[in-house]
């Protein structure tokens, strides 16, 4: 007689397990953390060289520069989210685990944000100094990055999940993902601009928060569906 296995599964344990694993791998492979960060810094320093060192001009376009650079840095780092797991077969094993794909995908995205989003936020004020950002805008910059970079990771994950099975998916990925980033870019830069005028920017923050919660609930489902197609 066959004994079927059935045990109680802890979703929280599964979530923690995957986050811990991804962080372990990233910390042993530090290039993945450092390279996007270096890219972020270099892109931001290119702008003064291209536009000229005038402080007024720089401080006016600083929010846009920092946010566009953050967007591109996130885009560069997205590849590591599923690519290596797909290449060595661990992605299949995750899809075959009894845990809901939603939980595992969310755990991977959280780990990705901790590895790439968080360092961006930490380094951003330093770059803001280089660009002469208005003093009143620093809080807004940090808050928008804090709420906005997770949205970038969540939406980006959909794009990676769709392109992970394709051999040359890199350029395609940017084509898919960048248009989806536009609302975050608009509201984040507008919040920072508004803060520079010492006006309240809670409205923009609220919209970014709404985008965050919306993508937090919907994106993992889309990622799960996309991964099933990609590993087919």
């Amino acid at each position: 007689m066959t004994n079927l296995a059935q045990q109680h599964l802890s979703y929280r344990a599964a979530f923690a397990l995957v986050v811990k694993r991804d962080l372990t791998i990233a910390l042993r492979h530090k290039d993945d953390i450092i390279n996007p960060l270096l890219f972020f810094i270099i892109v931001v320093t290119l702008f003064p060289l291209g536009i000229g060192p005038e402080a007024n001009t720089l401080s006016r376009i600083a929010p846009g520069i920092i946010w566009v650079a953050a967007l591109l840095a996130t885009l560069l780092s997205l590849d590591r989210l599923f690519k290596s797991d797909h290449a060595d077969g661990s992605l299949e094993q995750m899809l075959l685990s009894p845990h809901p794909i939603f939980i595992l995908v969310l755990a991977k995205i959280v780990a990705h944000w901790l590895i790439t989003g968080l360092p961006l936020i930490i380094i951003a004020p330093l770059l803001a100094v280089l660009l002469h950002l208005h003093e009143q805008s620093y809080a807004a910059l940090m808050l928008t990055l804090l709420l906005g970079t997770p949205v970038l990771s969540l939406l980006g994950a959909i794009g990676v999940a769709l392109t992970v099975g394709i051999k040359k998916g890199g350029v395609l990925l940017s084509l898919l993902v960048l248009p989806l980033y536009i609302p975050v870019l608009i509201f984040a830069t507008s919040a920072i601009d508004t803060a520079a005028l010492s006006l309240p920017y809670s409205g923009q923050l609220a919209i970014i928060a709404a985008l965050f919660f919306g993508s937090l609930t919907l994106a993992p489902f889309a990622v799960g569906a996309a991964l099933k197609v990609s590993t087919n």
């Binding site: 372990t24 042993r28 060595d88």
Partner: peptide
């Protein structure tokens, strides 16, 4: 086909 083993661990 693929063993699902991570080189970093």
């Amino acid at each position: 086909h693929l063993p699902g083993v991570k080189g970093e661990m």
